[in-house]
Amino acid sequence: MSPTEKRNLILAFESSCDETSVAVIEDGHKILSNIVATQIKSHQRFGGVVPEVASRHHIEEVTLCIKDALAEAEVGYDDLDAVAVTYGPGLVGALLIGVTAAKTVAFAHNLPLIPVNHMAGHIYAARYVEPIEFPALALLVSGGHTELVYMPAENQFEIIGETRDDAAGEAYDKVGRVMGVNYPAGKTVDEWAHQGKDTFKFPRAMEKDDNFDFSFSGLKSAFINTTHHADQIGETLSKQDLSASFQQAVVDVLAEKTKHALADYPVHQLILAGGVAANKGLRERLERDLQRNPTTHLVKAPLKLCGDNAAMIGAFAYVAYQHGVFADATLNADPSLEFDWAADSVK
């Protein structure tokens, strides 16, 4: 290899919630390693993520993840070009482990440090499918976030709509709990939904409103009222039909809002990303909708990279690296970090 062909290697860290992850990424699109230590089993004991427990697990795992990531990628510190880390949004105590470890590695080996917004990371999971073409629009759906992000050009992110109450993934967990499904409930509800029918016709919130915001609290309340009422009169409802009805309402709201957004923001790509992007119902619906759209094509984040992982952080870090976005040793966690709103959006 000539010096100009030297590959760019980034060691990326992610610890914003309940996964400790370290990855080595080549040129922003090739995964040499992506170690993910998940704490799901631990938090299942409590029915959801307990922040202090999450922080304690992260510190148990973080240096092991570094070692495994380097070993699997067969690289050493001398081969690296930069260190990248999620610094927000997320749980502050959890973020701090990744941020502290990443800063320390960067300092110890005199490497540049790249601060990465977790949501940019989620979007860039799609980079492992194909290069991102601008302008692009991303539908980000996860346990903590539901938002539409417009990307006019590389390294530019503008929120054009977001949830006004629960995130979609949060709503899944809540109705899952009502049906006796342990956190995280998305997968089971998705499976049941495919076995049932939309018989309950739950409300679709703000589907027709003239903005791109989402709301799932009304749907959640309708769901709880329906099951509560059935309990009182001793009636057993089909979990499959309940799931199908709930999921259909969620998917309708997400798909309708996205369709409106695409009308106002013509883009080359619609990127579907975030933990809930693994939902089959949502993937299928957007595939159908986008088949009828001649100008925009759908890029779905790979199933394996929908959940939190450091490979997606490394993919965006490569872009940040090209743009010279670096942090110094004072980098802190920013639990409520978010993209700016689009200047012309109706908030």
């Binding site: 510190i59 973080v62 240096t63 510190y77 502290t100 470890a101 320390t104 110890a108």
Partner: peptide, 9 residues
């Protein structure tokens, strides 16, 4: 975290 990362790295 700082100490163990320094020691490990």
């Amino acid at each position: 975290t700082t100490a163990k990362t320094l020691a490990a790295t």
